[in-house]
């Protein structure tokens, strides 16, 4: 299995926050979700990986060979987009097209026009252009997506793309990821960050969980769903079940939590329900545990 990015010991020191050391891999040919609460360090890590912010230490290997994110050839291969305020607010589709063309070698104007039409954003060639500031959050995000998808890249890196999108648009975003991956079968990868994975579960292949600036777990979703199990049962068994579980939350009538698969048999013997968790349930469990451990 090839990796599109290998992250080794990346750190960044801010006044009131430290990222790192981060060690992770992003597998090639799949969609990876970087999951964590707000403030966990997802944006900082993504910014560092795309050369938008400098790092204090560590290194990243891209496409198995390149190390220098300031190399224009490498930057051309990566399609980065932030969540809000990516372009200046007074820019229009026309100015975006002009600047994207200058900023990168692989921007396709025809594709941009086609995507703008598909996302119902207008035409970059129109005489009358609408400024980004006048668009809704959702349409602004769609504009950013149209711009970054108009480039022929090998790695798409999106910082919280789903946050400003409604459920219908999130569904469309999932389709866009699949379309992007299928177009160059096996050679393209997607990395996106989110604090809420539920709407994006159907497209996520690999997950990296972050908390307080560190990676707490990572793996292919199918493997994670086998390593961790969702446990729920009645309050009567709570006391016996709790020590076997990794995370635990209970009330007067029932309890629920995540346990390692090694404990599954013991837990089943206590007359509890043990099953594979959804990625959302697993996220809540892992992130809650990280909060408690901190």
């Amino acid at each position: 299995m090839k990796n599109v990015i290998e992250i080794k010991g990346i750190t960044k020191h801010y006044k009131d926050f430290t990222l790192g050391g981060v060690d992770a891999v992003i597998p090639c040919g799949f969609t990876t979700a970087l999951i964590g609460v707000n403030g966990a360090g997802k944006t900082t890590l993504i910014d560092i990986l795309c050369g938008v912010t400098g790092k204090s230490g560590g290194e990243a290997l891209y496409f198995g060979e390149r190390r220098d994110i300031d190399d224009p050839a490498l930057r051309n291969r990566i399609g980065y987009c932030s969540s809000m305020n990516f372009f200046p607010p007074n820019w229009t589709l026309k100015t975006i097209a002009a600047s994207m063309e200058l900023g990168f070698d692989n921007f396709d104007r025809a594709r941009f026009t086609e995507l703008c039409r598909r996302f119902k954003l207008g035409d970059p060639a129109d005489k009358k252009q609408k400024k980004l500031a006048k668009l809704s959050d959702g349409n602004r995000m769609r504009t950013y997506l149209a711009a970054v998808l108009s480039r022929d890249t090998e790695l798409l890196v999106l910082d919280e793309p789903a946050s400003s999108l409604d459920p219908l648009a999130r569904d469309m975003l999932c389709d866009l990821f699949r379309e992007y991956l299928a177009a160059r079968d096996g050679e393209r990868s997607v990395l996106f960050s989110t604090h809420n994975i539920s709407d994006m579960e159907n497209v996520t292949d690999y997950a990296v969980f972050m908390s307080h600036g560190k990676v707490i777990a990572q793996g292919f979703v199918e493997d994670l769903k086998q390593s961790y199990q969702l446990v729920h049962g009645d309050a009567a068994q709570a006391a016996k079940a709790k020590p076997l579980m990794m995370t635990f939350s209970g009330n007067a009538t029932s309890f629920e939590g995540i346990a390692l698969v090694e404990q599954a048999d013991k837990l089943r013997a206590l007359d509890t329900a043990v099953e594979a968790p959804t990625l959302q349930q697993l996220s809540v469990g892992l992130l809650r545990k990280a909060e408690q451990d901190e």
């Binding site: 799949f30 389709d175 699949r178 379309e179 991956l181 159907n202 497209v203 996520t204 292949d205 979703v221």
Partner: peptide
């Protein structure tokens, strides 16, 4: 995966 609208790993 694209046709069934699921993840590639599946």
């Amino acid at each position: 995966a694209q046709d069934l609208r699921i993840s590639v790993i599946t």
